[in-house]
Computed example of a mutant assay.
Amino acid sequence: MTERLDVTDEAKALIQTLAATHGDLMFYQAGGCCEGTQPQCFEKGGYFPRMNDALIGHVEGFEFWVDRDLFEYWKHAHFTLDVLDGFGPGGFSLETPLGKTFKVHYRLFSEEELAHLPEVQRSE
């Protein structure tokens, strides 16, 4: 199977710090407006995916959801979750007070990878 999502070592370290402070986490990448397309980190249950949003994988054991419309646009791409110094556009994500912001790097899947992609779970 081809994985849809990876995470950098720097992002893993930040996720572990956030989990130690906040407990179970979740990630959501929206499709625009106030928060842009910046991935947001919340305490689990602090945000509820909308109907038909896509669960594309887990980072450090925590769900990573993508807005249904954004997923349709990026369904042929691999996501790598990274972290940068600075403040993201939304400011609602748990890493913001630490002067960090999550970012996703994209690359298109190869034809072989596309043939081995798992189905995504959709929210109801």
Results as ranks from 00 to 15, higher is better:
Gln29Met: 13
Gln29Tyr: 01
Gly31Ala: 08
Gly32Gln: 02
Gly32Val: 05
Cys33Ile: 14
Glu35Ile: 05
Glu35Phe: 08
Gly36Thr: 05
Gly36Ser: 14
Gly36Pro: 00
Thr37Asn: 00
Thr37Phe: 07
Gln38Gly: 08
Gln38Arg: 09
Gln38Phe: 10
Gln38Met: 12
Gln38Pro: 00
Gln40Arg: 06
Gln40Thr: 10
Gln40Gly: 05
Phe42Val: 08
Phe42Gly: 08
Phe42Trp: 14
Glu43Ala: 12
Lys44Ile: 04
Lys44Glu: 14
Gly45Val: 09
Gly45Lys: 06
Gly45Trp: 06
Gly46Val: 11
Gly46Ala: 09
Gly46Glu: 04
Tyr47Gly: 01
Tyr47Thr: 01
Tyr47Val: 11
Phe48Asp: 14
Phe48Met: 12
Phe48Gln: 13
Pro49Ser: 04
Pro49Ile: 08
Pro49Gln: 07
Arg50Ala: 14
Arg50Ile: 07
Met51Trp: 15
Met51Ala: 08
Met51Gln: 13
Met51Leu: 14
Asn52Ile: 12
Ala54His: 11
Leu55Ile: 07
Leu55Asp: 10
Ile56Val: 15
Gly57Trp: 03
Gly57Pro: 01
Gly57Asn: 05
Gly57Leu: 02
His58Gln: 11
His58Cys: 07
Val59Leu: 11
Gly61Arg: 01
Gly61Glu: 01
Gly61Gln: 06
Gly61Ser: 10
Gly61Thr: 01
Phe62Tyr: 15
Phe62Leu: 02
Glu63Ser: 09
Glu63Asn: 06
Glu63Cys: 05
Glu63Phe: 03
Phe64Leu: 07
Phe64Tyr: 15
Trp65Ile: 04
Trp65Thr: 03
Val66Arg: 03
Val66Pro: 09
Asp67Glu: 14
Asp67Cys: 10
Asp67Ala: 07
Asp67Arg: 06
Arg68Asp: 00
Arg68Glu: 10
Asp69Tyr: 15
Asp69Gly: 06
Asp69Phe: 15
Phe71Ile: 03
Phe71Trp: 15
Tyr73Gln: 15
Tyr73His: 08
Lys75Leu: 13
Lys75Met: 05
His76Met: 12
His76Gly: 07
Ala77Lys: 14
Ala77Asn: 12
Ala77Glu: 15
Ala77Thr: 13
His78Ala: 02
Asp82Glu: 13
Asp82Cys: 09
Val83Pro: 06
Val83Asn: 03
Val83Asp: 02
Leu84Val: 09
Leu84Lys: 13
Asp85Arg: 11
Phe87Cys: 11
Phe87Gln: 14
Gly88Leu: 00
Gly88Ala: 13
Gly88Cys: 14
